[in-house]
């Protein structure tokens, strides 16, 4: 598949901070109290690229994603998203409209219908009129295969359906990049496929994605690059073929053996 290369429109502030990457992390450090969770992480994700992060739980993958859209403030280093510096309070809301995030626990708003879950942020944050926001949301719900569920409440849906609503909700903001934080880990095995299918479709449409997952088959199919993380740092990265068939580092080998045995 051909992806658009890194040549996104270069704005003035981008030119001085990065070289046209959609997401740029340089020497990012993050601690929670005495726990040093990210120890100098650097990563560049080009527009349209899909990067899969793998690693044991506690290795810092989720924290990394949360830093990219400013849910956690970093202690050192820099993160640039689409030319905007994450951590600049003035840019924060703009960053968040450009980066969508989907969580392991779905985090749908339980007191709102599916349609309202999806349409709320475009109305409140982008100022779209209700009709327009709801029409667009309904289209997105068709795209994730949930046309008939617009009037349902989250508690009436299966986990897989809830997660697809969460994806539609993030897409409704028209993001340029999407972050997926172990989005299939809380699902029953038979529901994983429907969520991965939606994510695959997004990747094929050229969405820039950082995906934290334990689904190695999905990573093998969809990732342009796989990055293995351990104890808050990147150990090695490469194409899925190279990473899965010929990992160099002993920690990567051990991790993959443990995962693939399951």
């Amino acid at each position: 598949m051909i992806r658009p290369d890194a040549a996104t429109p270069v704005s003035a502030e981008m030119a001085e901070t990065s070289i046209g990457d959609m997401i740029h992390l340089a020497d990012v450090h993050k601690s929670f109290g005495s726990l040093h969770v990210l120890r100098g992480v650097s990563l560049d994700v080009a527009a349209g690229e899909v990067v899969v992060l793998i690693g044991a739980s506690g290795s810092g993958k989720s924290t990394l994603l949360r830093c990219v859209n400013g849910l956690e403030a970093i202690d050192r280093g820099e993160i640039i998203v689409d030319g905007l510096r994450v951590g600049d309070p003035k840019a924060l809301r703009q960053v968040r409209t450009r980066v969508g995030m989907v969580f392991q626990q779905f985090n749908l708003f339980p007191h709102m219908t599916v349609l309202r879950n999806v349409a709320m942020a475009p109305m409140l944050v982008l100022g779209q009129p209700r009709d327009e926001a709801e029409a667009r949301s309904a289209e997105l719900l068709v795209r994730v295969g949930l046309k008939e569920k617009v009037a349902a409440y989250p508690s009436q849906l299966s986990g897989g359906q809830q997660q697809r609503v969460a994806i539609a909700r993030a897409l409704a903001m028209g993001p340029k990049a999407m972050l997926f934080d172990e989005v299939t880990s809380a699902l029953d095995p038979e529901l994983v496929g429907e969520v991965l299918r939606v994510m695959r479709g997004l990747a094929e449409d050229g969405m820039t994605m950082i995906v934290v997952t334990h689904e190695m088959a999905f990573a093998g199919d969809v990732a342009d690059r796989v990055v293995f993380m351990d104890e808050g740092a990147f150990v090695e990265e490469g194409s899925p073929q190279q990473m899965f068939s010929d990992p160099r580092d002993v920690r990567t080998k051990q991790f993959l053996r443990r995962i693939l045995e399951k």
Binding site: R66, N69, L71, R96, F103, V125
Partner: peptide
């Protein structure tokens, strides 16, 4: 997680509280 989701969608603090 409700706050995470609302913040990641760009809601401001008052919007997050209110809605």
């Amino acid at each position: 997680g409700q706050r995470d989701a609302a913040q990641s969608l760009g809601l401001s603090f008052p919007q997050l509280m209110r809605y």
